[in-house]
Design a binder for these strands. Structure first.
Lengths: 216, 216
DNA sequence: GATGACATAGGGGAAAACCCTCATTTTTCA
DNA sequence: TGAAAAATGAGGGTTTTCCCCTATGTCATC
């Protein structure tokens, strides 16, 4: 009776590597790999899975969205979030949606095994660095108030088109001509974009778009 | 007589994973792992290595720097660059310094093996996506005429301060107050910045500033 | 068939960015 | 110790962005 693991990461080299590590371990069995966010739920419906190793930064549908959906459909699913970045916003966001642990990609395989075993045992697990980040975040929250910083906005198809053109230095007018829509419509999309990413101006919009890879 | 490989990546989970994959292969032997840029040269001086799998985005000293140094000390060293990002600037930069190949972290293990064998055979290897990126970059160069595109403009100390604040969404007026200078002065710096990076507006300035890491 | 999200688009106005020219002082460095 | 580079700033203009408001047609979904 081994622990069944699903790996969800768009970097297949990474996913394959983890699989190779885990399959050498006793009592652990990698039952599947998903290279994007949308194929996870369908997989879970057809296969038995104990723990999902979930990359926070997935294309198409990011890890936080996926986590929300998975927990909604399978409330007891154990999700171990894995991320490149030790960002307080990611950590707190995905934990809010029911992830049982959060580790960084620069943690060693010993710690990975420890995390899996801890979570399989029903407890939670966090990398040391992550714990620190959370603590720092909490302290800042008390100081800074209760802004829901870092939450990932959902950008629509059209908004994304506009966003790409903005980042490519086209003006609102030029974007209108390119997309065969009115200047005013482009302005609408710009406004929505600014509101969604919580930016004050184009500079912030572009920075956040790049930081959060909103154009992929 | 197996191919001796050194893995250089700060995400040890990734490095361990690759190691696990490679060690299953015949004729390949992972002889070491480095988790930062500075430990690579010392390792090479003490160990025999055929191919380095080098992450482009290393902490402390990035992959491009490392590549330059390694090739300077070991001109025949075969370096396969690995990166999360398919950015033309990274690709062309590290190839300029003697890397023999460039693959993305989202390529599968088959392609990884192919890349290693190709490079070990003395040839070069690039992911399909990367090839496309390079081609696009070259075509843009030709279209753009004979400007030395991608050349790094020299940003002055003050300009850099202004730039940082622009990227942080401050307006010209606010920047003036923060730096105790006139709005007009800030406008001057903005103009110089736009001209130096060859951008049409703030959007481009911010994008290029991030792409070229002008704020470090 | 209603509800909600999305895309469309207009008017009007305030603010910010952008562009040109020019000039003075300060720093840097060869 | 000069010349070059950088930093400062003004006047006066155009363009673009940003921010309100409202409104309509489409499409999916419940």
């Amino acid at each position: 009776m081994s622990t069944k693991i699903l790996i969800a990461d768009d970097h297949s080299m990474f996913a394959d590597g983890i699989e190779s590590i885990l399959n050498r371990q006793d009592g652990i069995q990698v039952v599947g790999k998903c290279y994007d966010g949308i194929s996870i739920l369908p997989f879970l419906k057809k296969n038995e899975v104990d723990i999902i190793l979930l990359d926070v930064n997935l294309p198409e549908k990011n890890g936080i969205e996926v986590c929300k959906e998975v927990i909604a459909a399978f409330p007891d699913m154990k999700i171990l979030a894995i991320s490149m970045f030790n960002q307080e916003s990611y950590v707190s966001e995905i934990l809010k949606f029911g992830a049982k642990g959060y580790i960084l990609k620069n943690t060693g395989q010993d710690e990975l095994m420890e995390a899996i075993q801890t979570i399989q045992g029903g407890k939670t697990f966090f990398s040391k660095d992550v714990t620190q980040t959370i603590m720092r975040g909490l302290m800042n929250d008390r100081k800074g108030g209760n802004k829901s910083e870092g939450f990932i906005p959902k950008i629509t198809r059209r908004e994304k088109e506009v966003l790409k053109l903005i980042v490519q230095e086209f003006t609102t007018q030029e974007i209108g001509k390119k997309l065969f829509i009115s200047l005013k419509t482009v302005e609408s999309h710009r406004s929505s974009l600014l509101a969604k990413v919580n930016a004050r101006n184009t500079a912030g919009l572009v920075r956040i778009a790049i930081e959060k890879k909103l154009m992929d």
